[in-house]
Design a protein around this nucleic acid. Structure first.
Lengths: 156, 156
DNA sequence: CGTATTGCTGAACAGATTGCCCAGCCGAAA
DNA sequence: TTTCGGCTGGGCAATCTGTTCAGCAATACG
């Protein structure tokens, strides 16, 4: 579960050049191919590397507007609300949280006007008491993992 | 920029079996290899598919705690705060938003206790007036894109 | 102090895939 | 009607993958 420096470099390489093969990696890292292969297998069965799915940009798909909605749920309706939100394609992510809200979800929409439709669909459900939405203007730090990987690899 | 049904199926296939090759995809989809290759190239240069970087699980790296922090920034300090937050590895994502807060960021930490350290580091910066943090308990809908891709592909 | 275990190396092999090229076909647009 | 873009089906050399093997060093263990 802890990763060492070599694991870190493997992940870094993959992040920078995803199409790179095991053989080329072993050349760059100066280790045997079998080693890289074994490390990769281990990282994947460990769950450190979940997969290599394509990263799809919602904006390029026609959904340039992102928003975060904080939802307050009526007691005991949590499961229903989760199931409801899971059916809305524009809900990209849903968390239950501590704090003033009960859930936090990430939404996308085709436009600010379309966001209204999405929100209506999200909150148009019985268990949701209140929703407060924050529209994303800029994304100075896109979802990233590299710095954390580097830190985890160094701490070994 | 709009994707058709074939594009959608390509993305779906890639999402389900990321290690699949172009040749195998063409077999499954019943089209020529060149077609799949051309579609893939187009999707990538379009920016619809950003890449195939490894999806790393912070929890497996030893950071099982996720939180969202809403930050209020002192007027005119936005750029400095952004630069500051970008240097914190535990900040996985940062958005500037409309609404009561000014920024929303996703944090991870090694434990609830460690989260305190992370938050101290995040807010220990001059331009940040106030921070309110929500710890994630459950993640009923992990970051996903498939339903949106399906919707976008059907609307053609 | 021996001994088993684990991880890495370097190598080999057949089989599959990739990148690239081409000619032909077809539907849509000009 | 002509042109153009997209898809097909094929072929080629080069490369990579999956897998296996023996040797070696460091480590853990009895």
């Amino acid at each position: 579960m802890a990763i060492d420096h070599l694991d870190g470099r493997i992940i870094l390489l993959l992040a920078r050049e995803p199409r790179i093969g095991v053989l080329e990696m072993s050349r760059r890292l100066g280790v045997a191919r079998g080693t890289v292969q074994a490390r990769l297998d281990r990282l994947q069965s460990n769950g450190v590397i979940r997969g290599f799915g394509p990263e799809v940009d919602p904006a390029a798909l026609g959904y340039p507007v992102t928003a975060f909605a904080t939802l307050q749920i009526r007691q005991g309706q949590g499961a229903d609300v989760r199931a409801h939100l899971a059916t809305v394609p524009e809900v990209l992510e849903l968390h239950t949280t501590t704090g003033s809200g009960d859930m936090l979800c990430r939404l996308v929409a085709r436009s600010n006007a379309d966001l209204q439709r999405v929100i209506d669909r999200v909150v148009g459900f019985d268990g949701i008491v209140r929703a407060s939405t924050a529209i994303v203007m800029e994304n100075p730090v896109p979802l990233r993992i590299i710095p954390l990987v580097e830190q985890a690899a160094e701490e070994t």
